[in-house]
Computed example of a mutant assay.
Amino acid sequence: MKMINKYLPFLLLLLVLFCMPLLVEAQCPMCRMTAESNLANGGQEGEGLNNGILYMLATPYLLIGVIGYVWWRNRKKDDEVELETK
C-alpha cells in the first residue's frame, strides 16, 4: 500500500499527459482571423498568440493541482501522526 501511495501522484501526472492532445488551438474568430492574416504575411505573432492562450488556460488547473497535492500531502502526514499517537 505504501508503494501505491508513493507513486500515485506520478501515475496521475502520467495519465494526464497521455490524455492531452498534442496540438491544441483555442482562439476567438477575430483573433484567429488576425493571426492567420499575420502568418500569411510572414509574421510570427500568431504562434505566440496560441501559446499565450494555452498558458492562460493551463495556469488555473496547475494552481489547483498544486494546492490539492500540498493539502493531500499534509493531510496524509497528519493521519500518520494521529495513528502513531493511538
Rank of each mutant, 00 (worst) to 15 (best):
M1K: 11
K2G: 07
K2C: 04
K2L: 11
K2R: 10
M3P: 00
I4P: 01
I4G: 02
I4M: 12
K6Y: 10
K6M: 12
K6G: 00
L8H: 05
F10R: 12
L11C: 12
L11T: 07
L11E: 09
L12K: 14
L12F: 10
V16G: 00
L17Y: 07
F18T: 04
C19T: 08
M20G: 02
M20Q: 09
L23Y: 12
V24Y: 12
V24R: 06
E25K: 10
E25H: 08
A26I: 11
A26N: 10
Q27T: 03
Q27D: 06
P29W: 03
P29T: 03
P29I: 02
M30K: 10
C31L: 02
C31M: 04
R32P: 01
R32C: 04
T34Y: 03
T34C: 02
T34P: 01
A35I: 00
E36W: 05
S37V: 05
N38P: 01
L39E: 01
L39W: 00
A40H: 07
A40Q: 06
N41S: 15
G42N: 03
G43F: 03
Q44R: 09
Q44E: 13
Q44C: 03
E45G: 11
E47N: 04
E47F: 13
G48T: 03
G48H: 08
L49P: 00
L49D: 01
L49I: 04
L49C: 04
N50R: 15
N50D: 10
I53E: 02
L54E: 04
L54H: 07
M56S: 07
M56Y: 14
M56W: 14
L57Y: 11
L57S: 06
T59G: 02
T59C: 07
P60N: 06
V66T: 11
V66Q: 04
G68W: 05
G68P: 00
G68F: 09
Y69S: 07
Y69I: 04
W71G: 03
W71P: 01
W72T: 05
R73S: 07
N74R: 15
N74C: 09
N74Q: 13
R75P: 02
R75W: 12
K76F: 10
K76L: 11
K76H: 06
D78L: 09
D78M: 08
D79K: 13
D79T: 09
E80N: 11
E80H: 09
E80S: 07
E80T: 10
L83Y: 08
E84R: 15
E84I: 12
T85Q: 13
K86S: 13
K86V: 13
